[in-house]
Each structure stands twice: as C-alpha cells, then as structure tokens.
Design a protein around this nucleic acid. Structure first.
Lengths: 117, 117
DNA sequence: CAGTGGTATCGTCTATCGACGATAGACGAT
DNA sequence: ATCGTCTATCGTCGATAGACGATACCACTG
C-alpha cells in the first residue's frame, strides 16, 4: 500500500503534504515528528549520495543520477520519490526534461531542528 | 536476525563498532554511510524524543524514560539500543543503576556531516 | 539464600523498506 | 501516428524495523 498518486500527474511540481511542515516552529510538539521524518529520509547512503550530487553539481540534474549509481532506474526513482516526499528535493519544472534540485529551506530546517536537540 | 551480543555483557559500557566512526574525516567516502547511519538512528519520533529528554534533563537518567513514554519497557530498551549502537548515547557507568546520557561528540559529528551537504 | 526492582535479550508477529523487472505515461522527433 | 527516450508507478520478493510479552540477568535487600 504505497504511493497512490493518480497516473495522470506523473511529474507533479511538488508533493503536497510534505513541505508544508517546513514552516512550523522548532519547538512544536510535532517538531519531533518533523525531525524524525527528515532524518529518516536522509537515513540511507544512496539518498545521502543523491543529496550530495544535487548539492554539488549546481543543483539541477536529471536522469544522469541513474547513470552514476549502481542501481536500477526504478530503485533510483523510488529514492528520489522519498526525498521528494520529505520535501528535501523538488523537480525543476523549467528544465528541458525533468530535473531535480535541492530545496535549501528544507535542508535549513533540518539543520535547525537538529541544532535544537 | 537482530542483536547478537552474548548474554554475558548485558550492560556493556559502549557498543564497540559504532563510536569509532565518530572521528573519521567529513569528506571521507564513508561519510555518506556515517551520516546515513546517524540519520537513520534519529529517524524515529520516539528516538528524537528520547534524545531530547536526555539533552534537557541534565543528561543522565535511567528507567524514568520508560515511565514517560507510552511504550513497553522492552520497546524502549530497543530504541535505546539503537541510539547506543549509533553512538549517540551511552550508559553512565557511575550512576547507582544504569543511566543514559548523550554523547555530545556524536551529535556534533552528526551536525557537521549534515552541514557538509 | 530467596525476593525484588531495573534492564537487556529472546521469540514472534506485523508493517515497512529496499530492490528489481515490467509496464504505463509524457513528450519530442521522425 | 508511430517510435524512442526518460520517468514514475505497479507488483512482488526478501530483509529489516517496530512492537510486545515472556524471560533471563544482575545488584541489592532482607
């Protein structure tokens, strides 16, 4: 029982229901859940690597991610989906094809939440 | 196939094989794995809450943790084991009974690794 | 020594993750 | 319209995580 987005929006700009947490206060009782969710999304070496790739190479990129990883395309797509659901990355709508880039505010909030511990 | 520590060391001071990563350089190729491991350990609301409890209440505490959480003692113990395995907390050997406290250096390394992304 | 309180581990169950191949959708090019 | 390329999703599998009760341990106390 995973993702249930209708087939008609394959490349939706942002996963709603994820990034709206990025503006919540840091000492909210839900801050624990937010921090845990962000940490969980980062809690896989491949996803850390993807984040680094996106952070290093001037943000946007596309399918080249798959080429640089020793994983099937569908697996990489799944990792991208998880990072996207956590609000840490988003699709770059302006690019020729689909391109991903870091969401700096999400990363910032992650760091802020972590610093609050 | 979980924990396989021999029954004879129930309260071992530190889980070896976890904290030795805390001194590695930040740009090591293994830094990804370290960051992912730390994030994974923090990637659960209960564990975030435990970390906060330990950070707030002047570090050391013991079984009171169980009293403040809506979970069975064995479950809390498991979460503590995970945090301990990640090197984020350690047992306070000096206390009358078992006491846990944050390992500030681990938290610092976590923050440093995250800032490196 | 028997009893007790605080912990860690075992064994088991369910839910979720991680990976893959197959396939569907979107879209530019032919 | 058909093809080829790029992605996202489906369906499935094995592995792992998360939770619990039961139980073993250990350090004391009586």
């Amino acid at each position: 029982m995973k993702r249930r987005r209708p087939r008609s929006a394959p490349c939706g700009p942002d996963d709603p229901g994820a990034a709206e947490a990025l503006a919540r206060p840091l000492d909210d009782p839900e801050a624990d859940a937010d921090l845990a969710a962000l940490a969980k999304a980062v809690g896989h070496p491949i996803r850390v690597r993807i984040l680094r790739m996106l952070a290093l190479k001037n943000a946007r990129m596309c399918c080249r991610i798959v080429d640089e990883l020793p994983l099937a395309q569908s697996t990489v797509s799944e990792h991208l989906r998880i990072l996207r659901a956590a609000g840490l990355i988003k699709v770059n709508e302006k690019g020729p094809r689909v391109g991903y880039c870091i969401v700096p505010s999400a990363l910032k909030r992650f760091k802020a939440l972590l610093n609050g511990v």
